[in-house]
Design a protein around this nucleic acid. Structure first.
Lengths: 203, 203, 203, 203
DNA sequence: GATGAATGAGGCTTCATTCAT
DNA sequence: TATGAATGAAGCCTCATTCAT
């Protein structure tokens, strides 16, 4: 059936419209201060319509976080996979994350704003899922770094600790960029972040 | 009047009791899921009594954040001031922050949990204040680092960017420690963080 | 036109299908907890289609009650009309009602469940109609009994009161049977009900 | 503490006020068409206040039914206990039930209206409880009648069936009285009901 | 000063009904 | 004619705040 196809495509488009509207509101006001009515109005649908796409406010929020983060992690892995040498991989790590932040500034604002997890106690599931995915991401980075250590390019050091430092630097640059609503490209900072991580700041 | 003194001292003690109870609740459930009734019960006061110490829930939360952060920044400055050379200052920067996190794990959990800013739109004031203080903190660190650059110890590089990287590393270590509820002292990680920041990870 | 005939017949068949599906749902969950979507799904029609047969949920419910009850009253009258003597008529009264309950257990469950009248204030009409029909039914029974009194078979007593007692006994037997989901035939109880009504329980 | 006493008494008074207001509304409009706001307004409290006395709308309704029915069953048992001979006991059974109906016409209207059980599927508990209590009541009546059979006063017959018939007659009289909003005392009908139950209608 | 019961605005969600396809 | 996605009014409930005791 051709019809079913089109239906599904339209469904996904509308769903994406809602998510787009929701990101803006959630990023601007936080989970609790955003109202379903507001998101509905902003997405151009009636309140009831949202409930045909998402089972509730929390599920909408949850879908937002989960899907975007999944995409981000995937993009980063793809970028890293495209580089051949260690340093290139680390550079891609930083650069692809910066690219994602630039392209999803509003979404990332949720994290800088800080309320990405202020949900009812019920949804420990989402919290756990996000944390698990983050842990996996750090583990992935650690694995990349471990290769560098084995290759003798990086210092002998716990790779997870190294990965923690790297994500810290990257997140901090990104947070600054978002918080200050800087217009200059964040990606220009890639080399700076990379340099500090690789060479340190001591002369 | 001696009486007025005692009154004030008692007032401050009670106020601190409330804040202590509030930290635990806010850290455990987030701003919106914590109820005033809960905080009152946990602090041993009646609901109405809380309103004699704080004008409202947001103000209580605000006081909590502001005062703790002020103390933290002050502690860091004091620690840095106690060191004479650049590297020692940077070490104190890291170490004193780690110490604060260790001693205020619950409070810092608020930040890792992420909802430190999920307030009503009205309190943009608090948000702005926290951001301003953070910016000042970064500026302070940048100033320390600038001295290091001038002294030829650190690389020629934008000191604010350097400071951003440093706070990123420190926060990332701290977040990991809190999120994983690690028991081992966070301060043991000081040298590791310092090494990465100063020397980088490249062999 | 032959076509119009077939159309009408089809219309009535579909209508009956919907009513059949509706009885089950209403009986199981009550008027308010049953949803139109549920009835539509269960009857195999689309939601919108239901509205071509019934003007609304209440009207559907109303039609259900009215038509079934009308059929029941008619069946009872027919049965009573088939008997020649008073006692035979009363026996038919009881027996035909029991038969209807057995054959329409789900429908009667609506009454035992109790929400046959929990409608919006608007539909006082239906309420009134059902009550009127019930009053007529009681009046009909009273008339039958009056004949018995005149014939000297029954005690001198207000026939309406007698009729009230009889319907009470019958309804009570039926309710028990439905509530306990008994498998044994309810009609076996006809003689028992009749005996109590006619002879009483005193030895 | 004298204070706690008074508090509790006041609490119960207010609670009773709410129940009184609720009976009227529920009886007039049914469970689903009655709104919490309406009950609150009618009882002179704010909406939120109701929730300090009852956990929710269903619990309020549930308390209403449970408490009233418990009182009714208790009153009936007390009345029956006060009679010495079988016939006197049966008479008390009928009379005390009629008295309760007269004194609680509004409440009993809930049953005549019929929606006493149209609750969400969740509260099967209440439904089960009411049915259990009713079964116990019938069993109690059956026990009384069994004594009459043993004493040779009543016919040899299944006492539960007899009890079913008796409750049917009584309920039917009561329903008529409520439905027709008759002003004449229902208790005058006690002897009529008793006569039919004991002697039947056959001359 | 301390208390905590009362308040009621505001949020999330449901579902009967409509109407464009 | 049949469909079922969209609609939005209306209801239940929460909880920060007040104020009479």
């Amino acid at each position: 059936m051709e019809k079913a196809r089109r239906k599904e495509r339209e469904f996904n488009l509308r769903r994406a419209d809602i998510l787009d509207a929701a990101v803006k509101i959630f990023a601007a006001k936080g989970f609790h201060n955003a109202t379903v009515a507001e998101i509905a109005a902003s997405s151009g649908f009636a309140i009831g319509t949202l409930y045909q796409f998402f089972a509730g406010k929390e599920q909408l929020y949850s879908a937002l976080l989960t899907e975007k983060l999944t995409a981000m992690y995937a993009a980063i892995r793809a970028a890293v996979g495209g580089a051949s040498d260690i340093v290139g991989k680390i550079e891609q790590l930083v650069d692809s994350q910066f690219r994602f932040v630039e392209e999803n500034a509003e979404f990332c604002g949720i994290f800088v704003r800080g309320d990405y997890l202020s949900l009812s106690e019920g949804s420990a599931e989402l919290r756990a899922g996000i944390r698990r995915d983050y842990a996996r991401h750090v583990a992935f980075i650690a694995e990349v770094l471990r290769t560098g250590i084995r290759a003798g390019v990086l210092r002998e050091m716990d790779p997870t600790t190294m990965a923690t430092a790297l994500t810290g630097i990257v997140n901090s640059y990104a947070s600054q960029w978002i918080a200050l609503a800087e217009t200059e490209s964040l990606r220009r900072k890639t080399s700076s972040a990379l340099a500090i991580f690789l060479e340190g700041v001591r002369r």
